[in-house]
Amino acid sequence: MEKKFFWRLKKWEVIAFVMFYFFFASLYYVTLWINWGSSDKSDSSFFSLIRFIDNCGLQYLIFFLFTVPIWYLVFQQFRGRKLYFRLLIHLVTWPIFVFGTQQVYYSISETLGFGHLEGASAVWDVYIPALFYLIQFGMLHAYEYYKENQRKLILEGELRQAALKSELAAIKAQLNPHFLYNVFNTINASVPAENEKTRNMIAQLSDLFRYQLRASKTDVVTLEEELDFVKKYLNLEKERFKDRLQVDIKVSKDLMKEKIPPMLLQPLVENSVKHGLASLIEGGTISIYIFKEEGKLKFEISDTGIGIQNKQNVFGKGVGLTNTKLRLQKMYQSHLELLDNSPKGLTVKFAI
């Protein structure tokens, strides 16, 4: 992935923007040169740096300096707002740009002894900035739309690929689930009665398979059902880790009937166990905190494991985090946020 230069811009985008200004300044210079009288042409070569700065370079530099804060306001500060709201901002910034650049250009030109249009001809120093503003910001909005469309196409492609992998995994997993249940029951029945702990573990494992099969056939489950599945998974992990694994779940009872996609939490919890705590001799704690705020259900899954240094590169490597990220983007336009836990470990946050 190409690194950002600054303000979410790539280096080639900054260069292209500068070249855009140089092109229009040069085009304006050529237009002026063609319209100069014969005496002016004989006194000066086609390109004179002083004349270039005098006639157009200074003016387009001022255009650029006025454009940067307007661009930052529209495309950075309010980048998440509706398009109509950002277009309304232009109704304010357009006249500021047009008349502001004219007055600054005239003031600097008079201070430096450069010439500028006067009288009726000064209307061109209103018309040209106004037209240039429309051209440049029209192109910037069009480019933003193009980038957003490309991002959606890439996301849709990733989702199709993830869906295909999930379908293939589901096909592989459908090894006659009823056969699996019968095998589990047979094994359970063969375990001596005094080994009640082993019988419970087999029963919990059977419940996990049953829930996974149900998850492949339904779009939503209650939060209570999802948490029950996660608890059974963690109970089996605790048999392996013993006292090295501690679990802390904080969820209000009035949220238990909330509807969420199935298998949303377990991949994140499994990631915390597998990649966060498994390698630590002392183990650690898995914390699940779910609450409702501003009409949204918010999730925080934390561990006290080894954490992740490069949090952006983790996506695409692990199936659990990547698929959950794609599901949240597609279903809720929500983002999976990875943060450092305190004093150590990783915290995963998202809202639906």
Rank of each mutant, 00 (worst) to 15 (best):
F6Q: 04
K10N: 09
W12D: 08
F17E: 08
V18N: 08
M19R: 01
Y21D: 05
F24R: 07
A25L: 08
L32R: 13
W36L: 14
S38N: 11
S39V: 10
S39D: 12
D40T: 07
S44I: 09
D54K: 14
C56G: 08
L58H: 07
Y60R: 13
I62G: 03
L65D: 06
P69E: 03
F78Y: 14
R81E: 13
R86T: 08
L87N: 10
I89G: 04
H90P: 02
V92A: 14
F97Y: 14
F97E: 03
V98Y: 08
Q102L: 13
Q103R: 14
I108F: 02
T111P: 02
G115E: 09
E118I: 12
A120G: 04
V123A: 08
P129Y: 03
A130E: 02
F132E: 00
L134I: 11
F137V: 11
H141R: 14
H141K: 06
A142S: 10
E144P: 02
Y146R: 09
K147L: 11
K152F: 03
E156V: 03
R160M: 10
N176T: 06
F179T: 06
Y181L: 15
I187P: 03
V191H: 08
A193H: 11
K197A: 12
T198K: 14
R199H: 09
I202R: 02
S206D: 10
R214K: 13
V220F: 12
E224N: 14
L227T: 03
L234F: 03
F241W: 01
F241N: 07
Q246S: 13
K250L: 10
L255N: 12
I260F: 00
P261L: 01
M263E: 04
L264W: 01
L264Y: 02
Q266N: 14
L268E: 07
V269S: 04
N271I: 04
N271E: 06
S272R: 01
L277E: 08
L277C: 08
A278K: 15
S279V: 10
L280G: 03
T285N: 13
T285Q: 13
T285M: 04
I286E: 02
S287K: 13
I290M: 00
F291Q: 06
K292G: 07
K292H: 07
E294C: 05
K296N: 12
K298S: 11
K298D: 05
E300N: 11
E300W: 00
D303N: 15
D303F: 02
T304H: 05
T304M: 02
G305W: 00
K311S: 07
Q312P: 02
G316W: 00
G320V: 04
L321P: 07
N323E: 05
L326Q: 05
L328H: 06
Y332K: 10
Y332W: 09
Q333H: 15
S334M: 00
L339S: 06
L339M: 13
K344H: 10
G345P: 06
T347H: 02
V348F: 00
